[in-house]
Design a protein around this nucleic acid. Structure first.
Lengths: 157, 157
DNA sequence: TATTGTTATACTCTATAACTATA
DNA sequence: TATAGTTATAGAGTATAACAATA
């Protein structure tokens, strides 16, 4: 009957975003699986590599992961000997997180796989189009945070 | 130490997409909650409204929801008296799905809330930028499907 | 008192196998 | 035998409350 049964939804950014992100997630997880990683574990591994000595609270702020959920991801990375958790010298509640040599090698190989995945998904987009897309995504993320602030202001008059 | 601890991830479309989509999902679910809906239940309700008599298999194809998961969503919508499931005349295995009058009213109100949400999230994007974004998202989704086909061909030589 | 990491728990979305009743 | 819908179940990701050790 209707050629585009989802035409009402197609006008919304969220619908296109959900479908595009689902495609990306499926593809990147397939690309990461041979390396023993998933999107979330890879993201955490990369940020630890790029920020040696980072602590769990900071990491959860950076990646927008709740602290309790990060604990399980770190357990997984630590069990694989890809990161170390060592007590911080200046604060014995905290841990300094670092990637091991093994972890760095896995991270490098996985990063190549993710870069290839990214190129596949971006096929047909020119360099300017790609930059415009990244910029628009960042703008939308910011708009979401502003929305949070507004809600806070309204709920605490 | 690093001003952008996620600079490696920021170059990837998937990372920006995940963060933008998370912001959208939080905002749209907050917009829909007063109407008793979530992103998924709203999407299903809209497609049924726009495709009267649609069947569950077709609906799951349209929205990329697995049939078993759709059943629970429809149970929820039916319990609220927003849709009806009536046996199809030509095939007694199947159901014709339709929104009730009550369901149409909820859907209309929710759609206004979602439209307002969408405008909030798209703030700062011009009409052309917005169209370019929707087009890029659609392109990425297509690239994902091509990737699936390739994988099928490779795994079945 | 506040913070760091942790445990426990719950909810949503997603994914698969196996069942029933029809076709 | 194939399909429409269903049941049961399991895996991820996400979210909150409450706790121990430390600041």
């Amino acid at each position: 009957m209707s050629a585009r049964p989802d035409r009402t939804l197609r006008q919304f950014l969220g619908y296109g975003m959900k479908r595009a992100f689902a495609a990306i997630q499926t593809d990147v997880n397939a690309a990461l699986a041979p390396h023993g990683l998933r999107m979330m574990t890879y993201s955490v591994l990369v940020v630890i590599r790029d920020t040696p000595g980072v602590r769990q609270s900071r990491l959860s702020d950076i990646l927008l992961i709740e602290r309790p959920n990060l604990v399980l991801i770190l357990d997984e990375l630590e069990s694989a000997d890809w990161i170390t958790r060592t007590r911080a010298q200046d604060d014995r509640r905290a841990y300094d997180l670092r990637v091991t040599l093994k972890g760095r090698r896995v991270c490098d190989r996985a990063s190549a796989a993710v870069a290839a995945h990214d190129s596949r998904m971006a096929a047909g987009l020119g360099p300017e189009e790609r930059l415009a897309l990244l910029d628009a995504l960042h703008r939308i993320e910011s708009n979401g945070r502003s929305s949070d602030d507004d809600a806070d202001q309204v709920s605490r008059p």
